[in-house]
């Protein structure tokens, strides 16, 4: 199914960000002079401290905020045209919607198909099949008829992921998909992302789980108001660059790899050891 999706992607998915600056109405500059190029068949990790502009970069790529300068092109098209062609899917943090809405899990995933439906938006058998497969791929097949408020935090993330899968977009942006999920779920999501990469998708994933980055990211963009470093993980995700992005010298990689808002866990230790190998 993923292969079919890739075949439907059309021209190779790519994101080009050129000299992008975003400021909020109060004058606060969230991003300045960001230039990036991301290509198909890659998982790119977006890393930076809180307030470094990760979410703002997502919003600018999706056209939710208007940049003061610069432009974003998706697959060579402007953002709006790319969205109308369903070229890009966005997985927001799950706190951003009202979970008391009278809609079922299946209804929400079906909304991912909606841009592809005809005038009356009546789901076709093909739409239903894709929604079923998407639910299956995130392990939520048994929850299709549940009202969405009846789900746990991790399950809500999976539903949003399934909605993005159902959209069959060449590019998928994921805003902190690992926050508040257990390790099993994180590993399942990473497995899913790898599958999508093999099928030719371009994935941009923001995360605070630095230890996992070398594990699944082909490329890394280090952000702190602007691009600190970008490129293949081995080149960009170095202790020196991390220190520049997080604004403090690395007092040993272990503490850098375990961000303060995530309580240190046992698994952080071997992971950060691996990080040291990759990064040096």
């Amino acid at each position: 199914m993923a292969i079919d999706a890739a075949a439907r992607l059309g021209p190779a998915p790519s994101i080009e960000v050129h000299d992008l600056s975003v400021a909020y109405p109060d004058g606060h500059v969230a991003l300045s002079e960001v230039t990036l190029r991301l290509d198909a068949g890659r998982i790119c990790g977006l890393v930076g401290p809180n307030g470094s502009g990760k979410s703002t970069l997502f919003k600018a790529i999706m056209g939710f905020v208007r940049p003061v300068r610069g432009e974003v092109r998706i697959g060579g098209q402007d953002v709006r045209a790319a969205q109308k062609a369903n070229a890009v899917a966005y997985v927001p943090q799950s706190e951003e919607v009202d979970w008391t809405f009278p809609v079922s899990v299946r209804d929400v995933v079906m909304m991912g198909r909606q841009g592809r439906m005809g005038f009356l938006r009546r789901p076709s058998p093909a739409d239903r099949a894709v929604v079923g497969q998407s639910l299956d791929r995130v392990g939520m097949a048994a929850f299709g008829e549940r009202q969405i408020g009846e789900l746990s935090g991790g399950q809500r993330k999976r539903v949003f992921l399934a909605r993005a899968l159902a959209q069959e977009a060449g590019i998928i942006l994921l805003d902190e998909p690992f926050t508040g999920v257990d390790q099993t779920t994180e590993e399942e999501i990473i497995g899913l992302l790898r599958g999508l990469r093999e099928a030719g998708h371009l994935l941009l994933v923001s995360t605070h789980d630095l230890a996992a980055v070398p594990d699944f990211c082909d490329d890394v963009v280090l952000l702190s108001g602007t691009v600190i470093a970008a490129g293949p993980t081995a080149d960009a995700f170095t202790p020196a660059n991390l220190a520049r992005a997080f604004g403090r010298p690395p007092p040993g990689l272990a503490s850098l790899a375990a961000p303060k808002d995530v309580p240190g866990t046992l698994r952080e230790v071997p992971r950060s050891a691996r990080l040291a190998e990759t990064a040096c």
Binding site: Q83, Y90, P92, V108, M111, M117, Q167
Partner: peptide, 18 residues
Amino acid sequence: RDLLAYAFDPLHARSIGL
């Protein structure tokens, strides 16, 4: 359906081209 998609998650509605 479009109105519902917009009411539920306006940003997502926009991202699928509505």
